[in-house]
């Protein structure tokens, strides 16, 4: 019953989003609705869901409330890749727009580096966290170096990309995002009981039957794949992965059996709502959605933390 309610709320947000805005009439209106707004809402839902869900999973995995989808360096790697493509001039790779392809490659490479640390026998989650911080810092440094050599046009494009946005990509992006993000979400949702077990401690969970190392690999692997695909298309969208699970916790959603599916649903609905607002707020111009998620997310996080100091 409660699940039905949550599902309906999120569906209502997704359904209403493409209808809001300037009135649509005639063939042009139909084109805007079906070819621009509907795919954009679907991209927003896939990306927002991935970010919210991955944030919740990483918070459980690292047993740290500050973990985010970018904790293992995925976002920094994507930023580096995108910047390299913009600065060095990007053609189409793998049939994708060059920027998205390069961002995906960067994200995948950096995540693979961190994953290889996580796969080592004696690695603790603290080691993985440190590796994530190290590759994030290194990627940022390289990105700064690239920016230094860039001309002003590439620099402007890079800045725009790094703000986070839902692109007008029609259905092309969905062919990539659909399978990657839905596959990653499914793998992560199935981890809920194992992640619940980790709450009592990694070693205790192992004695209760949780294959801790495999859970770690699946979570980091599936998580960074979904996040890499998302960032590649939309840039690093801040705060969704951090804030959505915490706001849900603030409303009393505590077990991972509930938190994971709800983070997915409300991550999707939340990002679509933000994107719609970003589209409507300034007449005649669009605000990058990443600016809006940060503007709403930061105070929301402070509110949650002020209300209850629980996790991490």
């Amino acid at each position: 019953m409660r699940w039905l309610l949550h599902g309906l709320v999120c569906l209502a947000v997704l359904g209403a989003a493409p209808l809001l805005g300037a009135p649509l009439e005639g063939a042009a209106g139909e084109f805007i609705l079906l070819e621009l707004r509907v795919p954009r809402v679907l991209v927003g839902a896939l990306v927002g869901g991935t970010l919210g869900l991955t944030g919740a999973v990483y918070q459980a995995l690292f047993r740290n409330g500050l973990a985010t989808p970018s904790t293992v360096g995925t976002m920094a790697g994507a930023t580096l890749g995108a910047l390299a493509a913009l600065v060095l001039g990007a053609g189409a790779l793998l049939g994708l727009p060059g920027v998205a392809a390069a961002a995906f490659l960067g994200a995948a490479l950096v995540s693979a580096l961190v994953l290889s640390v996580a796969a080592r026998k004696r690695a603790t989650m603290g080691d993985v966290l440190l590796a994530g911080i190290a590759v994030t810092l290194a990627s940022s440094a390289l990105a700064s170096g690239l920016q230094f050599t860039a001309d002003s046009q590439a620099l402007f494009a890079a800045t725009q990309w790094s703000l986070g946005h839902l692109p007008q990509v029609g259905y092309d992006a969905l062919g990539w995002l659909g399978p990657l993000n839905l596959g990653s979400a499914l793998a992560l949702l199935l981890l809920a009981p194992a992640l619940q077990g980790l709450v009592g401690g990694e070693e205790l969970a192992e004695t209760q039957g949780v294959p801790v190392r495999r859970v770690r690999q699946v979570a980091l692997g599936a998580g960074s794949l979904g996040v890499a695909a998302s960032v590649a298309w939309c840039g690093p969208i801040a705060f969704v992965g951090l804030v959505v699970p915490h706001v849900l916790r603030g409303f009393g959603v505590i077990t991972y059996r509930q938190l994971l599916p709800l983070s997915w649903l409300y991550g999707a609905a939340g990002l679509v709502a933000c994107d719609t607002a970003a589209r409507l707020l300034l007449p005649g111009r669009e605000l990058p959605v990443g600016v809006l998620t940060a503007a709403i997310g930061a105070p929301a996080l402070v509110w949650v933390v002020a209300r209850r100091r629980s996790l991490g």
Partner: peptide, 14 residues
């Protein structure tokens, strides 16, 4: 435990 879960959930994890 790292999170404020209800006791029944903690024990169920066993």
């Amino acid at each position: 435990p790292s999170e404020p879960v209800p006791v029944i959930e903690l024990v169920s994890s066993a």
